[in-house]
């Protein structure tokens, strides 16, 4: 059984068929790309998988368990986490608090423990804080721990978002345009970074990206969407030579916004 199985996933916004008959099976440890012109429906697929929207039709299963209809926090707790196309940190909170809140699923105390600061509360808080700090250290962000998230430079904020996604110890990480707004140098290190995350945390990674250099270099498999429909699927080499893909991208003017 694959880690994630998506079958016949379809979603409508009113009359708009944003995603049509989407199928994908992700194996444990894979690094897969999802590309397509702006408005193709890529982010919508992520939103369906993470429970932000409820799929109109089709099925999404994680290790065989159905996800459609489950609320986002449950899906997150089951092991899927993500970043956003435009950064959605909790801006006025410190970086550390951003990471800590993403540990909500691991809170082991009840209100009474909390109001009375009982041992169970302190134990659980200590554990969460330690894990959050360890993540920040691993991602070399600890010196920003007590700064409000909004004070960080853009690139660092993107990294914090990834760390925050790691807080719930996901088995599948969804990255929505991680390279958006980065210069070529930064993209180079991002590629190493993504590889490192996968190996360090033994993760499966599925990413949306416009930067072809990144996708072609690191993804093992790529799926191409256009107007919600899958137009191609295969290895980077196959995709690069696919006529339909080239056509779809010729219509595209602005990249990576």
């Amino acid at each position: 059984m694959a880690l994630l199985e998506i079958d016949n996933l379809t979603h409508y916004f009113g009359g708009l068929r944003a995603v049509g008959d989407f199928n994908l099976h992700l194996e444990e440890g894979e690094l897969v790309g999802l590309i397509g012109p702006n408005g193709a429906g890529k982010t919508t697929v992520f939103n369906l998988v993470t429970g932000a929207y409820k799929a109109s039709e089709g099925s999404i299963r994680l290790n065989g368990a159905e996800l459609v209809g489950k609320p986002p926090y449950v899906i997150n707790g089951m092991g899927i986490s993500r970043t956003f196309q435009t950064i959605r940190l909790w801006n006025s909170m410190t970086v550390l608090d951003n990471i800590k809140v993403a540990h909500h699923g691991r809170v082991k105390y009840n209100l009474l423990d909390m109001f009375l600061v009982l041992p169970r509360y302190r134990e659980s808080e200590r554990e969460i804080e330690a894990h959050a700090m360890e993540l920040l250290r691993l991602f070399k962000l600890e010196r920003h721990a007590h700064e409000p998230a909004r004070n960080l430079p853009y690139g660092e904020q993107r990294r914090v978002e990834i760390v925050r996604a790691m807080a719930s110890q996901p088995r599948l990480l969804l990255l929505d345009e991680p390279a958006a707004g980065m210069n070529p140098g930064e993209i180079g290190s991002l590629m190493e970074f993504i590889h490192w995350i996968r190996d360090e945390f033994k993760l499966t990674i599925w990413l949306i990206e416009h930067q072809m250099r990144l996708v072609m270099n690191i993804c093992e498999r790529i799926k191409v969407l256009d107007f919600g429909e899958t137009i191609a699927e295969g290895t980077p080499a196959e995709i690069q030579n696919d006529r339909k893909v080239i056509e779809a991208y010729l219509g595209e003017e602005v990249e990576g916004v």
Partner: peptide, 26 residues
């Protein structure tokens, strides 16, 4: 104690970005 706990900081996360809070496990 509520607003300084990890649990209670979820309240602030809701203020800052409810959708993100929802998707990040709150």
């Amino acid at each position: 104690n509520l607003v300084n706990s990890t649990y209670g900081k979820g309240i602030i996360a809701i203020r800052e970005d409810e959708i993100a809070a929802d998707l990040m496990g709150v």
